Each structure stands twice: as C-alpha cells, then as structure tokens.
Simulated scan of single mutants.
Amino acid sequence: MTTYDFSAQRLFVRDDLAMGVEIAPSSEASNYLLNVLRMREGAAIHLFNGRDGEYRATLFDVSRRSAKLRVAERLRAQTGLADLDYCFAPLKQARLDYMAQKAVEMGAGRLVPVITRRTQARRLNAARLQANVIEAAEQCGVLAVPEIAPAVELDDFLARLPAERLLVFCDERAACANPFDALAGRPAQAGVSVLIGPEGGFDDAERAALMRLPNVAPISLGPRVLRADTAAVAALAIVQAAFGDWRAQGAADV
C-alpha cells in the first residue's frame, strides 16, 4: 500500500467510496477545491466519508466553477468510533466552535449537548456544530466522524446513562487532587462519558445528583480556574491517557 501522506489535503464527502468511482462534488466543495485550495486538473486529494475508509482521488473535467473527482486506491481502512462521549453544557457560539473542534481532535466518538441550570446558550445551531466537527476531522486525520446527539436536559441525561458506564465529570470540589489517582481502578469497559459543566459549574442539586450515580468519577483539573472550553481539552486528555488511545497500542478500553 502507498505510504500515507499526512500533509495531504482531505475532503469529507457523503458519497460511497470505492476505486474507480466518479464523484461530482457539491458547489460548496467545488468552490473549496478550486478557489480556496486552488487545485487544478490532475491534482490529488484524500477523500473520506466516515464509512469506507480514506481514498486518494484526482480532479478531472475541471471548469471555472466545477470539477469531478475520480477515486483511486484506498489509503486507510475505516476505523470505528471510540466509545468516548464528550458531554458538554453549550457555550456561546465562538467558544462552542473551538470546543467542538478540540473534542474531535481529542478522539471523542460522540458529542452530547447537556442543558444545565447555568448553561449559557440553550439554543444550538446544529448545522454549524456539524460543520465544525467535519472541518476538524478533515484537518486532523480523523476517519470516523463523531456523532452529534440531540440536546438533553441534565436530569434526563443522568436517567438514561447506563449504570455500568463510567461518568467522569470535572468537579472543583473533587476530594482527590490528582485526576489519575481518582480514575485508578475505575471500570471503563462499558465506555466513558466525560461531562463538562457550564461556566460557574454545576449547582449543589446537580452535583448531588451526579454524586449519587453508581459509576461516577469526579476529577480535579488542577489549582487553576479553567474556562469550560479549556477544561474540555484537559479532561479529554486525562481520560485518553488513563483509558484511551494515548496508552500503548492494544491497551485501549474506549
């Protein structure tokens, strides 16, 4: 198989991918290829759709406003989504964009908006959230595009959470200062959900409900007060190091 080129441009498509297939990109994708990337006849790009792996393709039948793509060899086999849910209280739009992009880069398999009492933004632009997820996947080599769940109230989220699933939530009152000590020995075989609260954190009633769960791990993120979007990156990094694909190959649980 051809050596993978990590510097290559990548494009997410919704079409089925297989060697020899010809694709007519959308007008938006064509504009991106021709006017943003300034690609011309015969230029190569990597395509993925979250189902069929990643393929090399070349542009042909190029005009001023459109082009077609001819799919060549497969470069990478499809990978599955990690059983790692990133659950977050929505923020105002610019910071939510950043948070969604970083969650994808950090290997989350599903994004779950959770509405808490102190949530800043209760209305989500689902199309914009999806666009940020896809853009992050294109830029950082992700093959399995994370799912986006419908927004859910915290009470409903907790009621639906399987008892055996590990819930990790950032808690400024966590008794254990070292997050890795707090996670040591926790069962994660049934998957992990990381819950990030809003600015100002969870209120007392919400925190009490979280602490009553059978498989919950409150963790500290250190002595500094972090913004919610920064806390997301820190928490996901800790979970990936403790349970996920940052560990030795073959040892991941999520």
Rank of each mutant, 00 (worst) to 15 (best):
F6I: 15
A8W: 12
A8R: 15
L11M: 13
R14L: 14
M19T: 15
M19K: 14
S26I: 10
S27T: 15
A29Q: 15
N35M: 06
M39I: 02
L47A: 02
F48D: 03
N49L: 14
N49V: 10
G53L: 09
R65F: 12
A77C: 13
T79V: 13
L81F: 09
F88M: 09
D97E: 14
M99P: 01
M106R: 02
A108G: 03
P113W: 03
V114N: 10
I115R: 01
R118Y: 04
N125L: 11
Q130M: 14
Q130F: 07
I134G: 01
E135S: 13
A137D: 08
A137G: 12
E138P: 02
E138M: 04
P146N: 12
I148W: 01
D156I: 07
L158P: 05
P162D: 01
A174Q: 05
C176N: 09
F180W: 08
V194L: 05
L195G: 01
I196Y: 01
G197Y: 00
G200L: 03
A208P: 01
R212A: 11
R212P: 02
P214C: 03
I219C: 07
S220N: 05
R224Y: 09
V225Q: 08
D229S: 09
A231S: 05
A237L: 11
Q240T: 00
A242R: 12
F243G: 03
Q249Y: 07
Q249N: 08
A251T: 14
A252K: 12
A252W: 02
